[in-house]
Amino acid sequence: MTLLTTVFAAIITTILWYKNAPKNEMKLGTLALMYWGASLMWMVDAIAEFIELKSAYFTPEPADMLNDLFLGLSVVALGLIIWLIILIIKDPKGVVRASFMKNKN
């Protein structure tokens, strides 16, 4: 469930990045790569788990599924927080800088 949630986040972010390309003002490429990196790593984890559990991997307990979904959503939220911090620090549109200058004046 965590893998699925992250893969969907990666796909949606990639679509948004493509829609805004070639402009990269929102640094969506960074967010997409972050989600893809996590998705690829969880895919390896899932393969290792499948080798261990065989078909039981596809029939998880409902409580485990809910916990994994909750974790997946938390991971997506954490990714968005990291991306927001990067966006504010790099400030590609100069919005943060401009607002500080405005306050100074």
Binding site: T2, L33, M34, G37, A38, M41, V75, G79, I82
Partner: peptide, 19 residues
């Protein structure tokens, strides 16, 4: 690109391990 893939992936996986 590789940095973003690796840092993003390992950072989010570290959170899972913390969880």
């Amino acid at each position: 690109w590789l940095n973003n893939l690796l840092w993003g992936g390992s950072g989010l996986l570290a959170f899972e391990h913390l969880w």
